[in-house]
Structures are given as structure tokens and as C-alpha cells.
Design a binder for these strands. Sequence first.
DNA 1: CAAATATATAGACGACCGTCGATGTATATG
DNA 2: CATATACATCGACGGTCGTCTATATATTTG
Lengths: 93, 93
Amino acid sequence: MVSAFRALGDPARLEIFRLIAAQPAPICVCDVVDHFHLSQPTISHHLKVLRQAGLVSVSRRGVWAYYAANPHGLAALQESLEELTPLRLSAAG
Amino acid sequence: MVSAFRALGDPARLEIFRLIAAQPAPICVCDVVDHFHLSQPTISHHLKVLRQAGLVSVSRRGVWAYYAANPHGLAALQESLEELTPLRLSAAG
DNA sequence: CAAATATATAGACGACCGTCGATGTATATG
DNA sequence: CATATACATCGACGGTCGTCTATATATTTG
């Protein structure tokens, strides 16, 4: 298991997540693979990390796996960021 | 140079940043060292990474180096998070 | 200048990570 | 059942990372 920060820390994974998050509807793995110069197993590996970090979710239909950004994961990340925000900021704002 | 996500991806570094961000005033390295079971060079290394990621800033006074959370770094991180937030969320909210 | 303290840098080492090709698993089609 | 397609898992390999000890670089004090 890996933290959301760690998951987004890898450039390839950040780009993959960006692609998924930018979609209006879930995107299938084959389409993700087409967007990068990375092997299908590598993409699959990165998707697993993003999944375990709670950043994306999967739904299978037939042979395809559709990935979508997980709103809860992003919200949790933003909350943990706000916890990190120094008190001086809240006091000033 | 390392991204802010990557910088906060390491557990030790996240804890160090938490400590610094929780202080009402800049904290010196020796005090940071006292809070962890890590060698002084290791702490120094992590501080350098946080610095390069734009998350903390240093100010030297005499022999001491005082570290503080960099508001701009956190703000930038929050902005990049908002960019990642799927459109469905903004539409729904 | 010598000694002590605070911090940074250098170099090394083991562990972890990203990547790949090969293979496994499941679903659809003929 | 045989074949094709989509995706996941396995095993390996090179590079990166976190950690340490040793050392360098100030700065203060006597």
C-alpha cells in the first residue's frame, strides 16, 4: 500500500491520473495504453498503485476495465493538505 | 529537483514537514533532529528535498538554520490538486 | 588560534521502484 | 474447443532512494 502523495510522485503515474481525471466518463485501459509510450504491463502496474492509493476506481464490463478518478481519494488528499497548512495562513486569511 | 508530491511521498519527510508546518515560528534543525530517530545527515538530506520542492524555506542566524513551511509551496500544491479534480465534481458542487 | 557546536556534503550500501518481456486469466466469437 | 482480445501477474534487471558514517564548512567561545 502506498500513500496518495507517493502515488502521484511518479511522473508517469501523475500523467496517467491526469488523463483519467480529465475524462468525462470512465476510460478503458487500452485507451490509457494508447496515450503513453509505456508497455501495457507497466500501465497496469501504475493503475494498481493509483487504485491502492484510493485515487482511482475500476469497473469491469466484459473484457474491458474502466478506470475513473475517485472523488473521495482526491477529497481526502485535499483535506490532508489543509491539515498541513500552517496556522499563520488560516489566521491571515 | 523533485516534485512536491514526491517530496511528501516519503513517510519520514511527511512527518518532518508536519512538524515544521505545525510550528508557530521557524524551527531550527537541531530541534527537528531531536524529534526523530534519524541521523542528523539524514534529516539534513530530507530538509534539502523539501527545500528543493519549494515546501520549506530556510533562514540562517549564526550557526543555526531555521526552517519554516513555505506558504507558496503549499498553495501551489493545492492549486495543482484542484486542477486534477474531475469536472464532474465542480459541476455537482 | 584551538576547541566546540550546528549544519551540510561526500561516499557507500542495501532496499525499493519503474520498466520490460513472458505468461496467466478471463471473456467473447467462430 | 480453438482463437483472439483485454487485462493482470510474474520474474528479472538497472537505476534511484533512504540511510548511515565520516568529513567538511562555518560560527561562536576561550
